[in-house]
Computed example of a mutant assay.
Amino acid sequence: MSTAATRPATATAPPASADVVRQVVVVVGAVLAIVLAAVGSGAFGGTSVSGASGGALSADATPIAPATTAFSIWSVIYAGLVAYAVYQALPGQRAVDRHRRLGYWVAASMLLNAAWLFAAVQLGQVWLSVVVIVALLAVLVRIFLLVVRTPTRSWVDAVVTDGTMGLYLGWVSVATAANVAAALVESGFDGFGLPSGLWSTIVLAVAGLSGVAVAVVGRGRIAPMLSLVWGLAWVAVGRFSGQPLDTAAGVTALVAAAVVLVVVVVLRVRAERSGSALAPGEPTRAS
């Protein structure tokens, strides 16, 4: 990676009061995201995400919906967000350039996550939840680009920052496709008379292509691939063993997952052979 395309994650100016404010905002955003996630999951009673909007967002609502087990990845993502909030709040990270660039974007993603739960669960508005999750996806793309352009020199930062944000982006990419499909089904969209299997194939193919794009831009980063492949694999499980049964969607999901996986492996092998593989202390590109 050329030095013109990236900037080292080093302190560029002494810590300022604005840095403290940013750190606090990220921590508050993480707490809010966790609390509302617990509420949205039904941990405190009330309607859960799967039961909201008449079950429009449940695992069996559309051929694009992943099986229920897939959503357990949120526990890993939330743990990563909390870890990032704590890490970036450390005094030694206060003036680090990449946290200055990432902080408010990460906080925005947390607030949009909370807003999605409010729209989907509390308001029961599926189309509003689509607007929110598309905005969340756009923010995560911005975060990913910033992560790519400001590589770290720390293994801890690589795992906490790059790993968390990569998993977050990969999973939300799959969730966005599922959310849009749920909104269309709830609205009575009949696919212009075309078979549902064809629409499922198209949507899942687009999700796979988005994973390929992320892999190319990120030069074979592993974290986004892991969560995206995880989501697609569980879409396949849902279509082969749950309702609605849809063999075409299941096969497409598996093919899309395999393509993303192969592209990431190829990109990383090429990097190794070209001599652009990571040197010790430059773990970010592997995240």
Rank of each mutant, 00 (worst) to 15 (best):
V24E: 06
V134C: 14
L267C: 01
N113H: 04
G92K: 12
L112V: 05
A107W: 05
V141S: 07
T69K: 06
G80W: 00
G29I: 08
P63M: 06
P14R: 12
W155Y: 13
M225A: 09
G275E: 07
R7D: 09
A178T: 04
L204H: 03
S48C: 02
A115E: 03
A5Q: 13
F189Q: 08
G242P: 04
L57V: 08
W74N: 12
G42C: 01
L261S: 13
A205P: 05
N179Y: 03
Q125D: 15
L167S: 07
L167V: 00
A177L: 07
F192H: 13
A182G: 05
G193V: 06
V139I: 11
L32W: 10
I64M: 15
P283D: 10
I77E: 05
L169P: 02
A277F: 04
P8R: 13
D162W: 01
F192I: 02
S187W: 09
V121P: 00
R142A: 15
V86F: 14
L146R: 12
S200N: 03
L228V: 06
R268Q: 11
V28T: 03
V259W: 01
A5F: 14
G46F: 10
Q88N: 01
P66R: 07
A181S: 15
T161W: 00
V212D: 03
G163M: 05
L136Q: 12
G80A: 11
W127G: 07
V49D: 09
V96Q: 12
L204V: 03
T284R: 12
G197R: 05
T164W: 08
Y87N: 02
Q23L: 02
V217P: 07
I77W: 11
R149P: 05
A114S: 15
E282D: 11
T150D: 12
A138C: 08
L267E: 01
S287C: 10
A183K: 08
F192N: 14
T176E: 12
G220Y: 09
W155I: 10
D60R: 10
